[in-house]
Amino acid sequence: MLTADEDFEGYVIDATLGRGGYATVYRAHRAGDPDHPVALKILDEDQRHEDQTARLRREFEFAHEIHHPHVITVYEHGPGWLTMELIDGGTSSALPGVTEKLTVLAQVADALDHIHHQGIVHCDVKPSNILATKDFSRAVLTDFGVAYTVAETVDWRYAQLEASLHYTAPELLHGRPPSALTDQYALAVTAVELLLGAPPFTAENPMELVDAHLNQPVPDYSDKIDWVPRIFDSVLGRALAKIPESRYDTCAELIAQLTHALD
């Protein structure tokens, strides 16, 4: 790990922002330019092998191609590192209320629909990959390290699946390639987790979680939570349909329906 005031590839480290499974993110600035901080993501020393460096490069290349206010902006990259805009409020899990959460979800839905129109599937939508500003006015979708283009999914194999299991759509578990509808499923799971505190399907081990995605019905939250109306269950049931073609046409439509249900 780097410490404050250390130099790295022309950047000066200000502080550590967070650590993940394979990388550390720092607040940093270009030497001589402290008024323009960035987020500097560096692979951990023991993770700088070919597949992880390729994943980080892929993360940069996808984000660099996308121009949308709710997709993270990236600046530079090198072997095992990249820089991106600094979003100062942390992940979406820190959002304080239903209104703020629905606003952020709508922004991310718009970003997802945008990348889907460009033929890109994110493949790892979850709360930790949604960052928000401190005033909760803006959110961005980040981490395109396992994203795919539609063209690449032609030769899709189940072994390529790297998505987080709690957010994985049933069709992926059946070996089908990812699509806009699999991102929508993950967004719906994310919405449930943000709004109600936990994802709809939980289990003690991975096999039970896979079975839940494939076979268990979507929970009826209106029977358990007083402030959740029955229409919320209907909206969620469609977004988390086992058959992807039964879901909403767009991510924006899903979040609009959830917002209407909770008005």
Rank of each mutant, 00 (worst) to 15 (best):
Y148K: 14
Y148V: 14
Y148E: 13
A151E: 14
A151D: 15
T153G: 05
T153R: 04
V154I: 10
V154Y: 07
W156N: 06
W156Y: 09
R157F: 00
R157C: 10
A159F: 00
Q160E: 06
L161F: 00
E162K: 15
E162T: 15
E162I: 10
A163T: 11
S164Y: 00
L165A: 06
L165W: 00
H166F: 01
Y167S: 09
Y167V: 03
T168E: 06
P170R: 07
L172R: 04
L173I: 03
H174A: 11
H174L: 10
G175N: 08
R176F: 07
P177K: 05
P178W: 00
S179D: 12
S179P: 07
A180S: 14
L181V: 09
D183L: 04
Q184R: 12
Y185Q: 10
A186D: 06
L187K: 12
A188L: 03
V189K: 03
V189M: 05
V189P: 09
L194C: 08
L194F: 01
L196I: 06
A198P: 13
A198N: 14
P199C: 05
P200F: 00
P200H: 01
F201T: 07
T202S: 04
T202D: 05
A203D: 09
E204T: 12
P206W: 01
M207W: 08
M207F: 07
E208V: 08
D211S: 13
D211V: 08
H213L: 05
N215D: 10
N215A: 09
Q216Y: 03
P217M: 01
V218R: 08
V218W: 04
P219M: 02
P219N: 02
D220F: 03
Y221I: 05
S222T: 08
S222C: 14
S222P: 13
I225F: 04
I225M: 08
W227N: 15
R230Q: 14
R230K: 15
I231Q: 15
I231M: 14
I231Y: 07
D233V: 11
L236M: 09
L236P: 01
G237Q: 03
G237A: 02
R238N: 06
A241S: 15
A241E: 08
K242V: 02
K242I: 00
